[in-house]
Each structure stands twice: as C-alpha cells, then as structure tokens.
C-alpha cells in the first residue's frame, strides 16, 4: 500500500462532526421506482441522501426512509417546493420531527420556471433555522457574496448551484464556484445542474468538498451505471485537485528530450 492510496482512504468528508467516506451526496427525485432508486444509490456509493417532505399517503408502497436506513445512508431532508422562509421553516420543523435529524437542506425557490433560490427568503430562513438549532445546508445561487453571508449567518454548509435544477447544463460559472470555495470556511457542496460524470469531476477539481445530484442519475438511461460513473468521477476529481494540475501554457512543451535522437539519411 503506497502512501498516496492510504491518504485517499482517510480523506473523508466531515460535516458537523460526521465523517463520510463518499463525497457524493445523492438526491432521490425523478426515480421511477423505489427498487431502482435503491440500486442506483448503492452503485453510487453515497452515504448521505436528500428526501422531500410531503403528505403521507397510505397507498404508497414501501418507505423511502426505511430504504435509506436499510442501506445505512444518512438522510438529509430538504425544503423543496417552498417559496417563502415561513414555509421552509415549517417544513424543516416537520422534517426534524419525522426523521429525527436537525440537518436540513434549505431550498427556498423564487418561481417554478427557473427554480432559482430566492436570496432574500433564503437569508431570512437560514437565520431563523440556525436560531432554532438546525444545521442548515443552504442551497444557493453561485454568488460568492451570498455564499459568505450564509456562512456568516451560521450555515453548516453552502451549496451553490452549477446550473438550474434538472437542466444538466453542468457548471456554468466555474470562476464563481472557485471564488466561493476559496473564501469558505464551511464545506462547499456543488448542487444542481450536473449532467454527466465530467461535471462532477470538474466540481471537485474546482475545490468543492462534495457534489449533490439527483436527476443526472435517476433520469439517466441506465441509472445504476450512471451512479457508478459518478462515484468514480467524484473520486477522480478530488484526487486531481489534491495532486495539483499542471499550469496552462500557451505553447507546446515537448515531453521527450530532443538530445540523442537517431539520425537517418
């Protein structure tokens, strides 16, 4: 075992004192069946997964919460579908009661067309939830100023979007993500917009601590295979970031020496 591989093994993600071996956080939206979702989650190697809170329906077969517990995956309830701080706080309170966790992925969106975070409501909700003892994972715009504000309000993690939810457009503003990472003292999780494995690798190369995605796996033609692809992408991106990439150059740089070449007539 080389020193490098030992280092990778101990390179866990720590959030609020909890250690995770995987830096891939999964969402659960968009999967056609609970069984299929379970298989994709397992293939992805995720240890932390988001769920939404909705009205209980007796007709629903199987429990998502039970599925996650069976696979030893920690649950991260979200406030998806909330447009105001008031709704988000209420949803978080219900999630804390139902799932017995004070972790919450805070989503306060502005409208259904863009699904972009509403910065004003987000700040308000973060403040209220932190005061109520929640560990807030704030889903935010890729705005370095707002990200720092959320951290200063007591957010446990900031989760800037790569692109709008479900678009699969990848990371539209890598520069802003790098800026957010460089100024953050809390974990930065790239959340939303991921389309394929290389997007997740890029997020890690930019210095993000983890990546959160759902649609890219659940709506892929082969969710299990895509889950596995993301598992490797996140590891590869993290390794590349730590290894230190070569600087970009304007002109070519030969990797073979010119000396000692054979001469031909």
């Amino acid at each position: 075992m080389t020193a490098a591989s030992t280092e990778v093994r101990t390179d866990s993600l720590v959030i609020d004192g909890v250690e995770f071996g995987s830096r891939l956080i999964m969402g659960t939206g968009g999967a056609p069946s609970l069984d299929g979702l379970g298989a994709a989650l397992l293939a992805s190697g995720t240890e932390l997964t988001t769920v939404a809170m909705r009205r209980y329906s007796p007709a629903e077969t199987g429990s998502l919460f039970q599925l996650l517990m069976d696979h030893n995956i920690r649950v991260l309830p979200n406030t998806a579908g909330c447009f105001t701080a008031k709704d988000a706080v209420m949803t978080a309170e219900l999630a804390r009661e139902a799932l017995e966790t004070d972790w919450v992925k805070l989503e306060v969106i502005a409208d259904e067309h863009t699904l972009l975070p509403d910065a004003v409501e987000l700040v308000d909700a973060t403040e209220q939830l932190v005061n109520r003892g929640f560990k807030v994972f704030a889903y935010t715009n890729d705005d370095p100023v707002l990200a720092l504000r959320l951290e200063n309000l007591g957010a446990t993690a900031v989760m800037p979007l790569g692109a709008p939810i479900g678009t699969g457009l990848g990371i539209l503003n890598p520069h802003n993500i790098e800026l957010i990472v460089s100024r953050a003292s809390v974990p930065v999780v790239l959340d939303a917009g991921i389309g394929t494995a290389s997007d997740a690798a890029l997020a890690m190369e930019l210095g993000c601590d983890a990546v959160l995605l759902a649609t890219a796996v659940t709506r892929a033609q082969n969710p299990v295979q895509m889950g596995e692809a993301f598992k490797h992408a996140v590891i590869a991106g993290r390794l590349a970031k730590q290894a230190g990439r070569i600087p970009r150059r304007e002109h070519a740089l030969a990797s073979s020496a010119m000396e000692g070449r054979a001469e031909f007539l």
């Binding site: 939404a52 429990s63 649950v75 579908g81 999630a95 759902a214």
Partner: peptide
C-alpha cells in the same frame, strides 16, 4: 399549522374542525 412534537402526541386531544397535516419523506431533491 403548529408542529406537534412526537412526545406530545398522546397528550394532544383533537377537536372538531382541526386541520391536520401528516407528512413523511418522499423522493425529491
């Protein structure tokens, strides 16, 4: 519109016309 903590469920008697929401974790996010 007020969360009833689990520990209070047994002691909380419902009244005519109460509006209850019962929620659970579902796929999403």
């Amino acid at each position: 519109s007020e969360v009833v903590p689990r520990s209070q469920w047994a002691a909380t008697t419902l009244a005519e016309g109460d509006e209850l929401e019962l929620v659970t974790a579902v796929q999403g996010g």
